[in-house]
Design a protein around this nucleic acid. Structure first.
Length: 348
DNA sequence: GGTAGACCTGGACGC
DNA sequence: GCGTCCAGGTCTACC
């Protein structure tokens, strides 16, 4: 029997604005329905997959900016496709909080708006992410050296091939343990991940044995250690861990280079580093009016965002996002299978 | 420390 | 329908 429960949100939270704030809202298992202004996803609770339908206010598209603003701070209604007990509801609520960054520090957001007031009026500040750090890492790898439509395909197939299926027939993103059991050849043949196959499996194995005492050899060789009790992933998510230590450890993961490491840092809520890629080059030329060879443009970009300090990434990202929205309309109006497929530097 | 080339896939294009 | 070219970040070998 389906269940229904509420989640309270920060007073400045707007579902449509804050879900549709990063490309991952277009990747499986996430799905945004612009017609009903609903966020649909399927989560692995550890025992099974549960599909969710999340709304804030009436299930209709916001008709105007004022309409959107009226939803600010309104509790979320979560409907599930199966009956759930309290412990499972807590697991689901925690994953939703991670995706929507409901636990993002208010003071930090206010500081961001002081440092970069351009986003104060719209309230932009939260950037959507995945239900788990593992999913964020794999999604980042599937977005490297590939055009956006291929990233969409890889994530859909990863869910269909390795994820659990919910009562309503939708797939969750595979857990590290489930991906770790696959052979690289299977991933390559069925999920179109190409040469990323072995790298994805290796990372899945690292995260799957997270609670165990084994430290990934490549990382141990760098002299990094963390409490056996909490494990590698918890160490990465621990606020007390230093930015530099996390960055260095991420660079030791297979398939993670400078871009991917900086991107995972922002997904961890550490916004001081810039994941610059070909999209950044396009932005530098077409929006900021910079000229010169790519290497010089990268240097100029770093210098340009330096004044935003520990909020650099958010200033960069919302600039980029504002450009997309100027081209394609507000992100909460984007259809996954049409507008949502067009985000590649060569197409903008 | 810097650089060239390989790694894969899907889409665009020409024939 | 087929072949060719291209975009995309990381990794390795080499200078």
């Amino acid at each position: 029997m389906p269940a229904r429960f509420e989640i309270t949100v920060p007073t400045d939270f707007i579902l449509a604005r804050d879900v549709c704030s990063y490309g991952y809202f277009l990747l499986a298992p996430s799905h945004w329905d612009p017609v009903t202004a609903s966020y649909l996803t399927t989560l692995d609770t550890g025992e099974r997959a549960v599909s969710l339908w999340i709304t804030q206010g009436p299930p209709v598209a916001p008709g105007s900016a004022r309409d959107l603003a009226r939803r600010r701070g309104v509790p979320l209604i979560v409907r599930t496709d199966a009956n759930i007990a309290r412990p499972e509801q807590r697991v689901i609520a925690a994953q939703i909080a991670r995706i929507l960054r409901l636990d993002e520090d208010h003071t930090h957001l206010r500081t961001f708006h002081k440092v970069d007031p351009r986003w104060k009026a719209s309230g932009r500040g939260r950037i959507m992410r995945s239900a788990t750090l593992f999913e964020d890492v794999i999604k980042t790898i599937t977005s490297c050296n590939v055009t956006w439509p291929s990233t969409i395909i890889m994530n859909r197939r990863l869910c269909e091939i390795a994820g659990r299926k919910s009562a309503s027939g939708h797939f969750a993103f595979p857990t590290a343990a489930r991906l770790a059991r696959l052979r690289p050849q299977t991933l390559r043949a069925r999920c179109s991940v190409g040469y990323r196959d072995a790298r994805i499996i290796e990372i899945a194995r690292m995260f799957a044995r997270d609670s165990g005492p084994e430290i990934p050899p490549r990382i141990a060789a760098r002299g990094h250690t963390w409490p056996v009790r909490t494990g590698f992933a918890a160490w990465l998510e621990e606020p007390a861990t230093g930015d530099d230590a996390i960055h260095a450890a991420l660079l030791e993961l297979p398939g993670i280079g400078p871009y991917a490491a900086a991107n995972i840092m922002q997904l961890l809520g550490r916004y001081a580093r810039l994941p610059l890629d070909t999209e950044s080059i396009r932005h530098a030329k077409s929006v900021l009016g910079f000229t010169g060879p790519d290497r010089a443009l990268m240097k100029k970009l770093h210098a340009h965002y330096q004044p935003f300090g520990e909020h650099r990434f958010r200033s960069y990202w919302f600039e980029l996002w504002a450009f997309y929205e100027a081209q394609r309309g507000p992100a909460w109006t984007w259809e996954r299978d049409t507008t949502g497929k067009t985000f590649t530097a060569t197409k903008l």
